[in-house]
Design a protein around this nucleic acid. Structure first.
Length: 576
DNA sequence: GCCGTTTTCGGCCCGACTGTTTTCAGTCG
């Protein structure tokens, strides 16, 4: 799938280079749109090219298709080289510095020969930048600051950190005088797996008062900007927070606007124009008279545009607007639909808390059941279940189930899939589990062909229910294993296996796109917090969020079933 | 350069901020 990212980057680079020519704005947008579509593509673009199906991609016409084809065939783009005439394409890298766009990048190259970020740093230190047309002391200082930030951290922030931070800040602001409403917007509200910065929207008729309140926030450290309606600061963790203040009347329109995504908003505004409206963050207005038509709450904005209200998790312009128009949006899975956690560890393997503590915490959350899925001993480091240890655990489960009834602990396990595709426990003990699952942790650096074969072979086993954290990615640290997801999805469907949406903050695996693919194929999903302590049970909230981004309804996820259904389905598979 | 219930031409989202500008260009979301 990485070729998709390369093609998307190429199209982005072309768009950036085209911005240098005046009068190309719509061509620029066309390349940006195409880059976005390719980035979101659910299948391998090289494969699509081989099948002559590039034109099926939204935003890709004859011209862009030809450029993609050349790049896939030869690894380069003569078009990009041509439009970068007079400067090397690498100069476009300078636009990674916030505040530097393509025009300034080109100017810096032409006047000072700056090509790389370190060239730029040298020039800024030597005060050679101020004095260039349109760039003064302030700009140079800004570039220096941004360069320092860029090297401190260029990564994005995981949702598991940003979401609670945003909730904390909005709660603190809600308690401030003059604040009528405060809520996280942006990619956090859409529950994107990682976010660039934190957007908080505040409704108030006293923006100056809000600014005071923001500066008093315990989390606020370096103040970056403080305009009339927008205040930006850095937290101690170096996360940028943007707080925007809007009048109460505009709350709905502003929340809609600042939630995005950008692509969703553009599509929505185009629709507004067709219907004789103008849509902005201040409201919905009649295009002719300019009169205010609505915008108090989000539902009003969508309804004026002839649409059902669209849940934020779906707002990516991936078909949700069409579905909202047709009244066919899915009824998304909700946290309340989840009746149990299906991936939990205890001290029987590498968990920090006892089985009893995990079960009690799960029951307190309102769950009806929990599958305890300690590692099998095959994952040596986890000191997991041997057959003897498993039997001991089953006895404890029996006692706990009597005490905690009607809450149920399911006898589960997280098995290892060996290099051969075999499981690491024998059938006589496997037969005793009610909810066995399997994972890959070891020896995953084999060729894509072997790894895919290993996973497909394992999925044919009758002894387990589903595959945990199927792609193996660790956010910001390790990409997905190199394997053929399509083949694994097909095998899962053929053998009635589930795939997990793992809610551990650094996994979120499957991610939203792969989970959507699974859902569309009819492969059922299981949600697991992968908790290794009582606090880890919070991961379920993230798993639900990813499932919602994948358009999952309650029936797409097995955690919504009652325990009798779950165990019955399990013994169907296990039955002799 | 793409696209179509304004369809093969003529449209294409909207506003704010910043810095250096004396009316605007560049950048961002």
């Amino acid at each position: 799938m990485s070729r998709n990212a390369e093609v998307a980057a190429l199209l982005e680079a072309i768009a950036t280079a085209l911005e240098l020519e005046p009068g190309n704005l719509f061509r620029v947008r066309a390349y940006q749109e195409a880059a976005r579509s390719v980035g979101f593509l659910g299948e391998d673009i090289g494969e699509m090219h081989r099948q002559g199906r590039l034109l099926e991609i939204r935003g890709v016409g004859q011209s862009i298709a030809a450029k993609i084809a050349e790049f896939l065939d030869t690894g380069r783009s003569s078009y990009l080289e041509r439009i970068c005439k007079g400067f090397p394409p690498a100069v476009l890298q300078l636009t990674r510095v916030p505040g530097l766009g393509p025009r300034r990048a080109k100017l810096l190259f032409e006047k000072l020969g700056i090509m790389t970020l370190s060239d730029l740093r040298e020039a800024a230190e030597a005060h050679r930048i101020c004095g260039l047309r349109g760039m003064g002391e302030r700009t140079e200082e800004q570039i220096r600051k941004e360069l320092a930030r860029l090297t401190r951290r260029s990564r994005r922030h995981p949702l598991c950190l940003a979401w609670p931070l945003a909730d904390r800040i909005s709660a603190q602001l809600r308690a401030s005088p003059g604040v009528i409403a405060a809520e996280a917007a942006g990619s956090i509200r859409r529950r994107q797996e990682d976010v660039g910065d934190v957007d908080i929207l505040v409704a108030s008729d006293d923006p100056a008062g809000v600014r005071e309140a923001v500066m008093l926030l315990p989390t606020a450290r370096d103040l970056l900007a403080a305009g009339a309606t927008k205040i930006s600061f850095l937290t101690a963790e170096d996360i940028q927070v943007d707080v925007r203040v809007v009048p109460t009347r505009s709350w709905g329109a502003a929340l809609q606007y600042f939630t995005g995504s950008k692509a969703h908003n553009i599509a929505l505004r185009e629709r507004a124009i067709k219907l004789g409206y103008k849509l902005s963050e201040y409201g919905v207005f009649d295009a002719d008279s300019g009169e205010w038509a609505g915008g108090l709450d989000e539902a009003e904005v969508y309804h004026l545009l002839g649409l059902d209200w669209i849940p934020p998790e779906l707002r990516e312009n991936r078909g949700e607007i069409e579905a909202a128009e047709a009244g066919s949006l899915p009824r998304l899975l909700a946290e309340e639909d989840v009746r149990g956690d299906l991936h939990v560890h205890s001290k029987y393997s590498d968990g920090e808390d006892t089985l009893a503590a995990m079960a009690e915490a799960a029951r307190e959350r309102g769950y009806r059941y929990m599958a305890i899925t300690d590692h099998s001993a095959g994952l040596g480091i986890a000191q997991g279940l041997t057959p003897e240890k498993a039997r001991r655990q089953w006895e404890e489960i029996l006692a706990l189930n009597r005490r905690l009834a009607p809450f149920r602990i399911l006898r589960g396990v997280e098995l290892e899939i060996r290099a051969s595709g075999q499981l690491d426990l024998a059938p006589d003990i496997l037969a005793g589990f009610e909810y066995a699952t399997a994972s890959l942790h070891l020896g995953t650096r084999m060729s894509a062909e072997r790894l895919t074969g290993r996973m497909v072979a394992a999925l044919a086993s009758p002894w387990f229910r589903g595959l945990n954290h199927p792609t193996g990615r660790l956010l910001g640290r390790r990409p997905a294993y190199d394997f053929d997801l399509g083949a694994v999805l097909a095998a899962a469907r053929a053998h009635g296996k589930t795939l997990e949406i793992n809610g551990a903050g650094d996994r979120l695996d499957l991610g939203d796109r792969a989970a959507r693919q699974a859902r569309d194929l009819g492969v059922k999903l299981s949600l697991g917090s992968d908790a290794h302590s009582v606090g880890g049970l919070d991961g379920m909230r993230l798993a639900v969020a990813i499932a919602r981004r994948a358009w999952c309804r309650a029936e797409d996820v097995i955690n919504t079933r009652d325990v009798a259904d779950l165990v019955a389905a399990s013994s169907d598979i296990l039955g002799p």
